[in-house]
Design a protein around this nucleic acid. Sequence first.
DNA 1: TGAAATAATGTAAACGGTTACAGTCGAAAA
DNA 2: TTTTCGACTGTAACCGTTTACATTATTTCA
Lengths: 340, 340
Amino acid sequence: MTRRSSSVTIRDVARQAGVSVATVSRYINRNAPVSPEVALRLDKVMTGLKYVPHAAARHLASRKTRVVGLLLNNLHNDFFVPLLNGVEAVVREMGYNLIVATYHANSRAHSQPPIGPHNTDGMLVFSDGLVDDDLANLKKNRFPVVLVYRRSPPSLSIPSITVENAEIAQKLVEHLINVHNKRQILFLRGPVHQEDSIKRELGYQNALRANGITFDENLVLNGEFERDIAYQVMDHFLGNGSRVAFDAVFAGDDDAAIGVLKALGQHGFRVPEEVAVIGFDDLGFAPFLNPPLTTVHAPTETVGRIAAETLFTILENKPATETVILPTEIIYRRSCGCQY
Amino acid sequence: MTRRSSSVTIRDVARQAGVSVATVSRYINRNAPVSPEVALRLDKVMTGLKYVPHAAARHLASRKTRVVGLLLNNLHNDFFVPLLNGVEAVVREMGYNLIVATYHANSRAHSQPPIGPHNTDGMLVFSDGLVDDDLANLKKNRFPVVLVYRRSPPSLSIPSITVENAEIAQKLVEHLINVHNKRQILFLRGPVHQEDSIKRELGYQNALRANGITFDENLVLNGEFERDIAYQVMDHFLGNGSRVAFDAVFAGDDDAAIGVLKALGQHGFRVPEEVAVIGFDDLGFAPFLNPPLTTVHAPTETVGRIAAETLFTILENKPATETVILPTEIIYRRSCGCQY
DNA sequence: TGAAATAATGTAAACGGTTACAGTCGAAAA
DNA sequence: TTTTCGACTGTAACCGTTTACATTATTTCA
């Protein structure tokens, strides 16, 4: 079997520097002392040969990949830019690589998750990227996982970084009710199994209940936290001659809010005069929408950073805080009817 | 040396199925026939054992990683969501993994690029992620690369996917000049070595020249294609008592346009009555800004898709088209002064 | 001064797969 | 009937590192 690779290996370096491969390896990894002269020689030889260690060989021998994964359920939301930015920054600082993949939990009938113990040292799982069974399995194999925008199943106690959803959503919807006198509030939920969506819906329902408004399931639509889907679903809703009266819409998140604004505009509704609109996330563009969007500020990039940092503390076998829930804050702008 | 791993290996599968590891490997990779009975038995054993091939071992033995890289210069722009989405979709369809990394060409003094032949089968390089020397090196080693939003250095002829910048920018600036009678147009350029920025500036200057307006370097600011930086630079510009008169601003891209709108608003300028604003990219929020943003529509997700597809055609040793320049289109909205 | 600790290095066995090469065996071709 | 061929399988070398273990020279210390 003759498979000569063109690339330069640790053996080439060893030979040219007149030492053993073990010494080269030790110098590269700085995990055992090497005499100054040898170090110097190795530096020269390595740059001369443009030697770059072969990642797969390292991984195989050392049983660590220096790669972490980020599993998302989709990439259809501007929200992911700050999240990714936070994660990537930490990963880079640690000298690791980041694999980004999307995976639908419901597509798992036929496929393995693209990220796991076979190709990474640990992973960040966004929202409903994996189901409880998958998580239990990973936990059993002691594979480092940190959940992002999702709490751990109680029995597993996996570290989890998320933001406060339910209370703030309730407070914001109550603002609509009490300050702006809205009573028929449309809610666009996100993906059914996404915790953010569930909590926000809970907040929405609590707000109604606390103010003596009966919940009307006709006022709940599936916006999927996606601009285009939110637009379609609103367009369809409005196209039906708006049989159901409504005077406000909680879009689920800012991205969906854009779709809502589009549909509302096309059907001739004035915002906020005729219908108030609120979002969630406070993405960069929120203050500049027309009208400026009342929404909840969530520290998305920070969530990404903390999540990645938590993963690395686990990788270093240090104890990690189990649940971090970052505070959120309502930002009142014009789309709810406020003057600001 | 005794380093027993807890994970199940191909040898475990082979033993339990009563065949050799070669047969298991062949069945997994479907690269040689295996008798139906053996196939059946292997299926059972593999699912029973929950066997997942170890990526690094595969990579080492087969000399291919089934991973491709995407090298960005930063992650500070909503523009990257559609780009990433396009790339990731193709990569997933091909059964590959995607490493996303940011890398500043000027930080290279001390570090190797995080992506390269050592850990991927090929890579997508966004804009100025790598300098010509790096590209030449990769080319020499026959490492598959495709450039995104950047043309190939003439001598290297690396496949490249980008969009038309200069002509459309010129046309848009001329719209400002001829239709809206603007003459003192601020330009916020992006990162200095980013081709998009250079081409757009070229279009800007051509527009001035073609209309007898002398170029004033005081009207060019560094917005870096970043919302926050654009805001700061505009804020500073306006804070100087606006010594330099201006009646319009070409923000460089949509994200920067948001920063510009913010600064303009804070300093009491009305858009578009007092100053017109134009962007580039036509990100999802552009129609919903206040005022709706006149901009250039660029097919960003498509660029991502085609770039990834091109990379895979190279990986399959098929001939790839060398340069793809996708058409762009001006979308007239209110921020330039049009009524729409 | 002799023993023990330490520094610096080498040898070679793993890590978990892929694949070149060499069969075996039954069916088709001569 | 003999030869040829293709389907199927096994053996073992190899991919490029890391690291347990061994070795030698040099200090350190009682």
